[in-house]
Write a protein that binds this DNA or RNA. Structure first.
Lengths: 124, 124
DNA sequence: CACTCAGTATTACATTTGTAATCCATACTT
DNA sequence: AAGTATGGATTACAAATGTAATACTGAGTG
């Protein structure tokens, strides 16, 4: 299975913007992030660079300007991060985590119904 | 709510040993970790120190020797790490993560039954 | 009492990460 | 053609992290 590069917290924010829509130029990414963060444009460019170096992003060039797009899907990354997380927290076992979460977390009647439905489907 | 210090990957391994049983001397911790890791004793002592500084551990002193014990529970730490994780992956929303997990992961018929049972209990 | 050994405390050092600033090249302006 | 502005490339720098090594100190040993 393909290994995805490790994406840090700050980088993750940038990836989310590009997963949401791509390709986008650096300036478009910067623009899109004005609300979520107060990072300086230079900071965001640094993150774009690092993500490109670690091959999480690539870009096409139009004149002087790069348009970035993801090389890895959100799903892949989420899955990969989840694996590490699971490993750290629960020694890699999935079910104990679920059990713990279900005990701890608030869920609406609606949510519970939906989850039960999912479990139904899985069991068939 | 009490804030737990941030515990890094390497430190987490040490905490697990002490959550499992405590108090333990540095040497006992080192001993216990021989299987899981190939860290040098000095490395483990460094981690014990850092954890003590960030008040995740404390110790009692018997003669020349320290016996370490956790100041934060595994549950607290798991919960806290889970919050950050959730925030990063799913913008903090719990249910989407569950949905995703349930879709992705393998679960035995047994597991599914158990989880459904948990959901049942929650809904009442 | 001098020496050694075992623990603890202090220091080391490369890498990663967060957070930018400065330098460079080129496209447009005058 | 020279000057300016804009976007990319390079450099910066502190804190956190992984991974130890060295220094110090007191307790037991000869």
């Amino acid at each position: 299975m393909k290994t995805v590069p490790h994406i840090t917290d700050a980088e993750w924010e940038v990836m989310k913007v590009l997963w949401n829509q791509s390709p986008r130029t650096a300036n478009e990414v910067i623009e899109a992030m004005q609300d979520q963060t107060d990072w300086k444009p230079k900071t965001i460019r640094t993150l774009l660079n690092r993500l490109t170096q670690k091959q999480a992003l690539s870009f096409t060039q139009e004149n002087r300007v790069y348009a970035y797009f993801p090389l890895v899907s959100e799903g892949e990354c989420v899955k990969s991060e989840t694996q590490s997380f699971l490993k750290r927290m629960y020694g890699g076992a999935f079910k104990p985590m679920l059990v713990n979460f279900l005990k701890e977390e608030q869920l609406s009647e609606e949510d519970i119904k939906e989850l039960k439905q999912l479990l139904e489907n899985k069991s068939k």
